[in-house]
Design a protein around this nucleic acid. Sequence first.
DNA 1: TTCAGAATACTCTGACTCTGATATTCGGAG
DNA 2: CTCCGAATATCAGAGTCAGAGTATTCTGAA
Lengths: 225, 225
Amino acid sequence: MARRKISNPLALAVLACLYERPMHPYEMATTMRTRNKDESIKLNYGSLYSVVDALQRGGLIETQETTRQGRRPERTVYRVTDSGVHELLDWLGELLSTPVKEYTQFEAGLSFLPVVSPAEAVALLSARVSRLDMELTGRRSVHSRLDEHIPRLFSVEYEYKTMLLDAELAWLRTLVGDIESGALGGSETWSAIHSGDADIHHAKEGQVGTLEANGHRQEQPKGHR
Amino acid sequence: MARRKISNPLALAVLACLYERPMHPYEMATTMRTRNKDESIKLNYGSLYSVVDALQRGGLIETQETTRQGRRPERTVYRVTDSGVHELLDWLGELLSTPVKEYTQFEAGLSFLPVVSPAEAVALLSARVSRLDMELTGRRSVHSRLDEHIPRLFSVEYEYKTMLLDAELAWLRTLVGDIESGALGGSETWSAIHSGDADIHHAKEGQVGTLEANGHRQEQPKGHR
DNA sequence: TTCAGAATACTCTGACTCTGATATTCGGAG
DNA sequence: CTCCGAATATCAGAGTCAGAGTATTCTGAA
């Protein structure tokens, strides 16, 4: 990659905080939590402090002062440097303008869908449907409360995520329908493979044979990144 | 977490391969590539071998034999154990049925949208729109070629991803529209903040003040996972 | 008044993971 | 005969993370 010396998104958050005003790490953490940035950026102390270190070594931030109140642990206030500001803007520009390939757990799961039987698939995916549904209900109520207090500009990321969940839910519903009705291409093969394992958790022998039929996708998608 | 001893999705792929039939690691890699699983699961040799090791230490797979053809490097063939099969099924069940919180780069970017000026935001997001558009065009042609060769069952994960990209694209278009027209809640504040920095890359002084207005989201979303 | 518990501000450890570089051998194209 | 790329790995270094530990002060209820 060599792309960016520091690639942890948490570093972006640190830069953004310091761009606003100098702070010590713990304060960054609480600031982010207050603003719910920890919904969109994974935050934990271990990482925070090491990221701050790395940023300092890289010259993107520097320490402004080190103080101590009473006999609490010492705290170090950092400020962003010019090259830090540059990095922030540049990085942000890249994130916003250039889609990158990311791997989600669910995608991984989906790609092994044929491993479970059609019946089980329906059960599992239906469970997901109802969980997503609950999640979305919750989110919608958050949205309405949010809208009264802060402008939409400051919660686009939340809106974005909600809209993705929504899309997933709709897609899942039709997928489940297609599996149930046998309308999904490959259903016959799929049922055939799993015809033996009524109780799948004891499938000792079946070993499934060649799961992927002929399997070879001729033309691979190529162009990415 | 303590959730799963091994949490790397690559391990899932290894289990799935071995569930089909015993193989050596290199063969797993090529099998996955052939089937385009590497689109949905990050695959690289370094990780593959360490994951295989970890699986073996955990007793989920075991070595079947070690052979050598000619004077090529020795290769070790693994097979899945009973507890490996159990883990595979259980894990897959969880992945399919339970949504988990994941953090994407773009989301991180979005959450700092106010850092760039409205004009720049429009420029950056428009760039993303056109890149997504190209990507989607490519994908659609892949879909049609795929459909002739392999049943939909074996490419749900690809379909899923495509549909997500599609949803993102649509959303982005309206977002960009809203920013341009000033219909996005908070636009005035946003423009005000950036009124000084015509050339944003030299914004020395501005330091933005308090970006987040009053900032506090009262009710945080809570309920997750 | 007292004392549990939250908040403050970090530090550390052990494990996992990723990236990228580095071998070595073979078969086939030119 | 030569060079390239596929076959089959290994390894070092760095980044990352979850979670627990530490030491002190403040707050609110009993």
